[in-house]
């Protein structure tokens, strides 16, 4: 782990060592801490199962960790469930994630999904769902953006649009912590890369 940057009123912070547990088992045991301040973009890198997504879940309070987050959070998961047991259309989903009705049009336009407003959530492709959640997270002017592989399922145009939106959010003062396997994305964002190693390998 590397420790760079400063945390003002909003951001993500963990003193060293950065640790995340699941059911009492140590998943992540970084020698150093983690700081993501306003305007910072930090990319978590590492092998599958290293604990990158677990660090985001630790930020959200879903796993016990040494991480603390200050400020309003915009989160984009790696995959969003799509089930026939959840009868949701796009507008229902926006309402659920807290977008007021008067802002639906702007978020849908930012996600380039104007053609899909009445489509069921499960009928949207993985990339379309991801575009919508990224657009919503950024449009909500969240102070802390936690993004789990936000460009993994996107076509080149959508990827470029999402990267531009993330960079703009950081310029506007958001603290961005993202998981990425894509070196081009990390370079395009000018992100600071932090290597994550699973606890069993680290110790």
């Amino acid at each position: 782990m590397s420790t760079v940057g400063t945390v003002g009123t909003a951001g993500v912070m963990s003193e060293a060592p950065l640790r995340v547990w699941r059911r009492g088992r140590l998943l992540v045991d970084g020698a150093e801490g983690l700081r993501v301040g306003p305007g910072d973009i930090v990319a978590l890198r590492g092998d599958n199962g290293a604990g990158k997504s677990s660090i985001l879940l630790g930020c959200l309070g879903l796993l016990p960790s040494t991480l603390t987050v200050r400020g309003q959070i915009g989160y984009v998961p790696q995959q969003v469930r799509s089930s026939v047991a959840l009868p949701l259309n796009l507008a229902d989903t926006l309402r659920l994630v807290g977008v007021p009705g008067r802002q639906h049009e702007a978020v849908v336009a930012a996600a380039a999904l104007n053609h899909a407003t009445t489509r069921p959530w499960q009928a949207l492709s993985t990339g379309e769902r991801m575009r919508l959640l990224v657009a919503r997270a950024i449009h909500s002017r969240a102070e802390v953006l936690l993004l789990d592989e936000p460009t993994a399922s996107l076509d080149p145009d959508s990827r470029q649009r999402v990267l531009s939106a993330i960079a703009a959010a950081a310029v506007a003062g958001a603290a961005v912590l993202l998981v990425s396997h894509n070196d081009d994305d990390i370079a395009a964002l000018g992100a600071r890369a932090v290597a994550v190693v699973a606890a069993r390998e680290a110790t």
Binding site: L56, L57, L60, G61, L62, I73, G74, Y75, P77, V80, R81, S83, A85, L86, L88, T93, L96, V97, G98, L133, L146
Partner: peptide
């Protein structure tokens, strides 16, 4: 419902 969609989205809210 938000928790059923994704627990992380509910936690972020």
């Amino acid at each position: 419902l938000l928790d059923a969609l994704d627990p992380g989205l509910a936690a972020a809210a």
